[in-house]
Computed example of a mutant assay.
Amino acid sequence: MFISIVIPTYNRKPILEKCLYALEQQKFTDTKINTYEIVLVDDGSTDGTLQWLDENRHDFPNVHYFAQDHLGPASARNLGIEKARGNIIIFIDSDLVVTESFLQSHANALIEGEKKLGSDCLFTYGAVINTCNFENPTSETYKVTDFSAAFFATGNVAISRVWLEKAGLFDTNFKQYGWEDLELGVRLKKLGLQLIKCPEAVGYHWHPAFNLKQVPNLINQEIQRGKMGILFYKKHPTFEVRLMIQMTWFHKTLWGMLSLGGILNEKTLSPLLQWLINHGKPQIALEIARIFLNWYNVKAVYKAYKDI
């Protein structure tokens, strides 16, 4: 088994360092894993990522890195697949820090899953734990908010490259934030692939603790996600996709009511959010902020749908 870990990155140098160092510390108990490589695709970073890699290449014997203009994660992952030499592709994000048994756990789950199903028509999905602890990200424990019901999310999945090629890789029309991985998941599901959960393959997804300076960018992401959601729906006009992108009357009513029709927004809620942040509760503040963030998303979905 030759594993290629494909990682797109864009302006994430500080946490990327931890990501790559953790991947270089993998330990194996099974000789069925012959070797592995880390295929890093820099998506036009401006933070010195490539210079840092050049200066520290001796620390990363398994890393092969490539660069492209800022074309988005779908394009970057496709380039990573093209350059990868392994028969198994693992996707993670560049702000994910893994444990030393990460690759072995995915490999074990793939082997056991193939035995159980009698084919390799499957992929494994590891656990993702969110953390804002930069110094020691792997110390975070699992929380209810870490649960994900996504079928194919590229934060932590392993799959035979043959299925990616049969499905047609990522759609590079998804140039803005969101949905390019779940859209590929729909095509993989149509090919009959089954999800095998692999909670032993843990990745710790780092992001800075929530603060009000992040709000404009988070709102912009939700608007982009709404636009890309309609692209997703145009390709797969099903009720399942409508649920995923929140294009239902239930979602419109829910977030409209919770936000009081937009009265509870980034301006009116900022005193409460700042108070929670000041009292050491940034995660609670973020969950409250999701009220207006989801309202921005739903409005963007319906606007984009109306525009087409």
Rank of each mutant, 00 (worst) to 15 (best):
E100R: 14
G118Y: 13
G72L: 07
L122C: 10
S119H: 15
A109R: 13
E100N: 13
K83S: 04
V97P: 11
Y65H: 14
E55H: 04
N87M: 13
F134Y: 15
S119E: 09
N56D: 02
A76N: 05
P73R: 14
S45V: 02
T131I: 06
L117G: 06
A76W: 08
I129F: 09
P61D: 10
A84E: 08
L96Q: 02
H58E: 10
F60T: 08
I111E: 02
K115A: 08
F123N: 03
N78K: 06
Q104Y: 07
Q51D: 12
V98N: 05
T46C: 11
E114T: 12
T138G: 04
R57P: 00
C121Y: 01
S105L: 04
R77P: 11
F91T: 03
W52R: 06
I89T: 08
H64E: 11
P137I: 03
T46L: 10
N133A: 05
G126N: 05
R77L: 12
I90A: 11
T138M: 07
S45R: 02
D47R: 14
A74S: 15
S45K: 05
V97F: 11
V98Y: 08
Q51I: 04
E135F: 10
T131Y: 10
T138W: 06
T49I: 01
V98A: 01
K116E: 04
I90G: 03
T46A: 07
S105N: 15
L79C: 12
